[in-house]
Design a protein around this nucleic acid. Structure first.
Lengths: 231, 231
DNA sequence: TCATTTCTTAACGAAATCTTTATGCGTCGT
DNA sequence: ACGACGCATAAAGATTTCGTTAAGAAATGA
């Protein structure tokens, strides 16, 4: 299955929560990501935005409210608040600060999962901004997952698209072999440069006017590849 | 921006609830609308759609679940469930049936209002999504739950419609196998891609001019399917 | 209840994709 | 000049993914 399971970041200092929420999430088809402190959680969110966040307000290092505010500064996805305390004011504040739901501890796993589904249902409708990258005659719509050349749609295989998307998201910067390989083929294949050669070839065949003299997908010898995005 | 205050329909048989929720809503800047039975509530919703609904599950005339299902058939706004019972299964069912939140009685007014704000915040994002989607010769009315091809109505089974509706709500985006499966068959069946193959086949049979060469319901190999909605 | 529709599941051939190996070309340093 | 190295392309085989069909189970409605 190439479409990855939704990644749920759980930020909680109690190992117990992770121990039983992790497997539950996994059983429900999600990929749980663990963070034990607020700082760790915020870093994880910034590094690779998860599909949803479960945040405990009672963290040892950062005040829960502060964590929520700082998270909302750059993260738009669903955030569910967990809290041991039954304080109305806290709930109201959290919800008004941008949390999508609030669950009291102790909670039923089924209910948490249901509320997670609701939050992600809402997130689906939140139509994102049109993230479209232009590179010469090539146009890449990263949201619709659509690629066209001179206005004509181009059919790409999953790997081909993932590779192109990775290059496009770099914003014209050189992407090293390692970066591309780990992103598309996973960390285990970070050394198989040959994959890149083959698939870059495929992409050039489909996207370049003259595949032998690439002007859009350029190779940076010894380093990696670069997509020449328009300014 | 609507000219008048947001109208909140409260469906509850207990006069007590209306007595203290009504003024609270009014104080918060809303215009409360009262319904004492399920039938009355549904009628009010159909007659003049409120900006949000607060629905008590323990109604005397209609089963709460049924009321929710029937409401969701034509009303897309926020629905908050009220219930005296603390039953996990009921919560999960209600949330999966399309409710946006679930509050147990007795509740704090402040919390209810906060959750209402969250729900309406979500509704804002949801707004703007067209209720009728055109894709080639196919027309899908997501509210009336009606599908037609070249103006001729098309009969679809429940699953077939749900699948098509999910594709249509994507607005031309690719919907991954996982997204479609979790939305239509539930998270438990997120891996059964075979369902999709079978039902996509059915839909093509009914909707495509040449089912063997689909131009409206396109497959994105390795990723999912896409409905080619008109621009 | 019975009849009809709908859903689930399995099997199979066909097609597309991925992986791997092989080969040729050019550059660079020795 | 020579070999080493990185890059590009081609092609074959293995694997995965798709679409179709069909038959039995389950749900629906009269």
């Amino acid at each position: 299955m190439s479409a990855h399971r939704p990644r749920i970041l759980v930020i909680d200092d109690e190992p117990q929560i992770h121990r039983f929420l992790g497997p539950a999430l996994e059983a429900a088809g999600y990929e749980p990501v663990r963070a034990d402190t607020g700082a760790e959680g915020l870093q994880a969110m910034a590094q690779r935005p998860p599909d949803a966040v479960v945040l405990d307000l009672g963290l040892p290092d950062i005040d829960g409210k502060q964590a929520l505010i700082r998270a909302r500064a750059f993260y738009e996805g669903p955030i569910l608040i967990l809290s041991a305390r039954d304080m109305e004011m806290e709930k109201i504040e959290a919800l008004d600060l941008g949390a999508d739901d609030y669950v009291e501890k102790p909670f039923h796993v089924g209910e948490l999962l249901a509320r997670l589904r609701v939050a992600m249902r809402h997130a689906l409708n939140r139509a994102g901004a049109p993230a479209v990258v232009h590179a010469g005659a090539v146009e890449i719509d990263l949201i619709k997952r659509l690629v066209s050349r001179d206005g004509e749609p181009v059919r790409l295989s999953p790997r081909e698209y993932d590779l192109l998307a990775c290059l496009a998201s770099g914003g014209g910067k050189v992407m090293t072999h390692r970066q591309l390989l780990t992103a598309v083929w996973g960390p285990a294949n970070a050394e198989d440069v040959q994959y890149l050669r083959v698939f870059v070839g495929h992409l050039r065949q489909k996207l370049e006017a003259d595949p032998a003299n690439p002007r859009t997908l350029v190779t940076e010898p010894g380093v990696g590849y670069r997509l020449m995005v328009d300014a």
